[in-house]
Design a binder for these strands. Structure first.
Length: 828
RNA sequence: GCGGAUAUGGUGAAAUUGGCAGACACGCCAGACUUAGGAUCUGGUGCCGCAAGGCGUAAGAGUUCAAGUCUCUUUAUCCGCACCA
């Protein structure tokens, strides 16, 4: 290690020592700049595979490099895992803690539309700014592994993986309604639709059918639920994912469609129900207005105009309008009927927008007696209501609880469980139904009518249909376009790049057109954690060896807002790669935790428009990175929202200054440590160690404050006590810890030191103070030896003046002594 | 409506899981000191009360020698999802 840098340019420790001995105040700027340079030059945090050490992979969600720069929220997560990573390192683990950039996305493109600056250029500048900011905070990232998802060397593999999805039949094209802004003439991502309006111009968003690439995440729905049992995710995340996937068990039943006289029309309407046992209570059926039968049977209706009108109205409504208005509307398809397969009765068929096209089969059997929505609809249209489950009062509302089956033929008298089984058996034997599991989760819409994303590596050939480009042609680069706006047809800006679009079919060599939509920005983040394992590999996305050594991610911290997006997508993506044999484990993340947001001092979200944004650069400039990091750990419980407070920040600054000031009182180990000193030290070691593991960072910091307060009251501090403090602080405030470590004369890095071992025995006091209660009320305290007998303790308690006074005129019934905890005298 | 959280001093919060409520910090009060700084140091600080004492963990009930912690009921706030058949 170069002594010169370490000694602030002086050639020896002695000379340097003279400098700081005259120094009055804690100069964080000098200290932090110095160590950041040394760490970078000496690549202190670079990691390589080392099979002699246990590995630990800590991961935080990489940021989107926005023009606004780092937000104070980012460092909350980054510092937390930096603390964990640094501690693990000191505990002997080979720690991978990487950072990169999720760099494809809309803001850069919107900026390009406004200014004409190519997204690649603005993105590069933003990444440089983010990198500078992240480095100024002293995280122990291995910067040699840094990449951005828009790097061709990276997105080459994102495209390659898409082709694998296609080859396995998991990527397919389907016609889907997209959000379309008629004013901007652009397809919007769901994230860009705010309250049914375009985020940029405020115009009402409408639905427009467009062919979309889809990824078949629903094929993995069951595994995405079941495998949650094999990982250590916080409960909130697990239950949110389970809810989102929305598994339900039920049955599909066929209702034959007939004319008014019961003559079969040759079409069987399939409905999905979770309660096949209530089929005797079905009094009508409903199809979504978009159901393909509705159009196909148009010539059979007596009221085709009314039907067509309703379809038109429904299509005009946005998703939001359709779901926010729960009053029931609909139109009967007059002229056709449906036959209840259980009792053969003919019942009316309606269309209504309360039936959703995307869930189940897009058609339902209505049981108004036992489903409030069906009940409401039946009331509007004056339809019969037949009760099949005993209970409730169906003249007032639907009975949605369970009850004995009535009016249900062979199911009469059965409970829900038996009737469900009987109904499904009946349907299966009759050949008109089967048990069926359904999910709320839909397949993943994977195309965006956008420019700044990974081009989808597919071409369309008249003869061969959709074909992937040859893998040797990857990466498929984005073409330059004159204008980043989409064209009038709702095509991506790529459609304007004629030379790029027109190509040849990789299969037959004939004329073909490239896909002009790009991937969503969730694509690149679906596998970035794999790339960190082997980021410069140009033969594979990562070598088997690297994946085998580093995966899984041992601890992944990120925002709750990604639970049903990135976190779910990447689990699916990873499982697919696992099925193909490309990654060694079925789940990517062993442990998932989540941090709370940081709000502005006014309790509001920080935003430019409110003018309450705290800029990390200013905090680092005025207080230093160590204070900033420590403050974010001290601000409150890690998993809860916290409010920014300049006063508290100042308090933490005082604490860091105190650590600096204590140094003057540090003597060698010739100063003896009293048992009390030893106790204070070991108590702190134990508490800090435990609390970091539990992410109780705020109380870990409290422990260190208590320990520092203890040392503040000492005349002379033995070196060991102070060194221990520095080691415990090193994960939180690495710069000052490293500096003071060096000033103590050490020539090694503090991160290379062993994490201190706490000794529970030495941390224990040999006398304990017990509370003494009378009838449960505190009356005083006694101090007894750690292993005082019950009798001694009782006697000591009864000696208390306060107790004697309270005891007057009363007799003792019993005395409860809980050793080390409390004495309670029960008297009356 | 469904699901998940949260509720403790003037403020942010602790509480080893049923055992001295308020650790640690901010703020405030009093004092000391100074090269007047973003100072620093010392002491105090849940509420009522001169005191003895009483009252205190959103509200109400319960279990217990003992409840912030367990059980039931209610209220408020926040975050998801939301006509999912």
């Amino acid at each position: 290690m170069s002594g010169i840098a370490r000694y602030n340019g002086k050639s020896s420790f002695k000379e340097w020592q003279q400098d700081w001995q005259n120094e009055e105040r804690y100069n964080f700027r000098t200290i932090e700049n110095k160590w950041q340079k040394i760490w970078e030059n000496e690549k202190v945090y670079k990691v390589e595979i080392d099979t002699n050490k246990p590995k630990f992979y800590a991961l935080v969600e990489f940021p989107y490099p926005s023009g606004a720069g780092l937000h104070v929220g980012h460092p909350r997560s980054y510092t937390a895992l930096d603390v964990i990573a640094r501690k693990k390192r000191m505990q002997g683990f080979n720690v991978l803690y990487p950072m990169g950039f999720d760099a494809f996305g809309l803001p850069a493109e919107n900026y390009a539309i406004k200014t004409g600056v190519h997204p690649a250029i603005s993105t590069k500048a933003n990444i440089e700014n983010f990198t500078r900011q992240l480095k100024s905070l002293g995280f122990c990232f291995d910067w040699d592994r840094c990449f951005a998802t828009c790097d061709p060397e990276y997105f080459k593999w994102t495209q390659w993986m898409f082709i694998q999805f296609w080859k396995h039949g998991l990527a397919y094209k389907d016609k889907m309604a997209i959000n379309w802004c008629p004013s901007c003439k652009v397809g919007l991502a769901n994230e860009e639709v705010v309250n049914g309006c375009c985020e940029r111009c405020g115009a009402q968003v409408v639905r427009r059918d467009k062919e979309q690439w889809m990824l078949a995440i629903t094929k993995y729905a069951d595994r995405l639920i079941n495998d949650l049992d094999t990982v250590d995710f916080i409960d909130r995340v697990k239950s949110t994912q389970i809810n989102w996937i929305g598994r339900s068990e039920g049955a599909e039943l066929e209702f034959a469609l007939t004319d008014n006289n019961g003559n079969d029309l040759g079409k069987k309407m399939v409905v999905y129900t979770t309660r096949p046992d209530t089929t005797f209570g079905v009094t009508y059926t409903v199809m979504a207005p978009e159901h393909h039968f509705v159009k196909e049977l148009m010539d059979k209706y007596q009221n085709p105009d009314e039907v067509q009108n309703y379809i038109n109205e429904a299509s005009k409504k946005s998703e939001l309008q359709r779901t926010s208005d729960t009053t029931k509307t609909g139109v009967e398809l007059k002229g056709i009927k449906a036959r209840n397969p259980f009792n053969g009765e003919l019942i009316p068929v309606f269309i209504s927008d309360y039936v959703l096209t995307g869930y189940g089969t897009g058609a339902i059997m209505a049981v108004p007696a036992h489903d409030q929505r069906d009940y409401d609809f039946a009331k509007v249209f004056n339809l019969p209501i037949i009760q099949v489950l005993a209970g409730g009062d169906i003249s007032k509302e639907a009975w949605e609880e369970d009850g004995e089956h009535i009016n249900s033929g062979f199911m009469n008298g059965m409970d829900k469980k038996d009737a469900m089984a009987a109904a499904i058996k009946f349907a299966e034997e009759g050949g008109f139904g089967k048990a069926k599991v359904n999910f709320k989760l839909r397949d993943w819409v994977f195309s965006r009518q956008r420019y700044w994303g990974e081009p989808i590596p597919m071409v369309y050939c008249e003869h061969c249909g959709w074909q992937p480009i040859d893998e040797s042609q990857l990466p498929l680069m984005l073409p330059d376009v004159p204008d980043y706006r989409p064209n009038d047809n709702g095509d991506s800006p790529l459609a304007n790049a004629k030379d790029w679009v027109e190509t040849t079919c990789p299969k037959c060599g004939g004329k073909a057109r490239r896909e002009t939509d790009v991937m969503p920005n969730w694509a690149g983040s679906s596998w970035y954690f794999l790339r960190y394992c082997d980021p410069h590999n140009d033969k594979e996305f990562a070598s088997k060896e690297a994946l085998k050594y580093w995966m899984n991610v041992d601890w992944y911290n990120g925002g709750m807002e990604h639970t049903t997006l990135h976190l779910l997508y990447s689990r699916f993506w990873h499982k697919f790669l696992y099925d193909c044999g490309y990654v060694p484990m079925p789940e990517p993340y062993q442990k998932r935790t989540s941090h709370g947001m940081i709000l502005a001092a006014d309790g509001e979200k920080m935003s430019k428009s409110r003018g309450n944004v705290i800029n990390p650069d200013e905090i680092v400039e005025n207080y230093g990175a160590d204070t900033f990091r420590l403050y974010e750990m001290f601000i409150g419980p890690f998993d809860q929202v916290a409010m920014w407070s300049d006063e508290s920040l100042n308090g933490v600054y005082r604490f860091v200054s105190k650590i600096y000031a204590l140094f003057k009182k540090v003597y060698g180990n010739e100063v003896p440590m009293s048992p009390e000193d030893t106790r204070a030290m070991h108590k702190c070691i134990i508490e800090v160690t435990e609390r970091i593991d539990q992410m109780k960072f705020n109380t870990a910091v409290s422990s260190m404050m208590t320990y520092v307060n203890y040392m503040s009251n000492m005349e002379k501090i033995p070196a060991q006590m102070y060194e221990t403090l520095l080691k415990l602080l090193a994960p939180f405030t690495p710069h000052i810890a490293e500096e003071m470590w060096a000033r103590l004369g050490h020539s090694s890095f503090i991160v290379a030191q062993d994490w201190p071992e706490g000794d529970a025995k030495l941390a224990e006091d040999n006398v304990v103070t017990l509370g003494v209660q009378m009838n449960g009320k505190m009356r005083g305290t006694i101090t007894v030896s750690k292993d005082a007998s019950k009798e001694e303790t009782e006697a000591e308690a009864l000696k208390l003046e306060n107790v004697a006074r309270q005891l007057e005129g009363k007799t003792i019934k019993k005395i409860i002594v809980v050793p080390g905890r409390i004495v309670n005298i029960v008297a009356a």
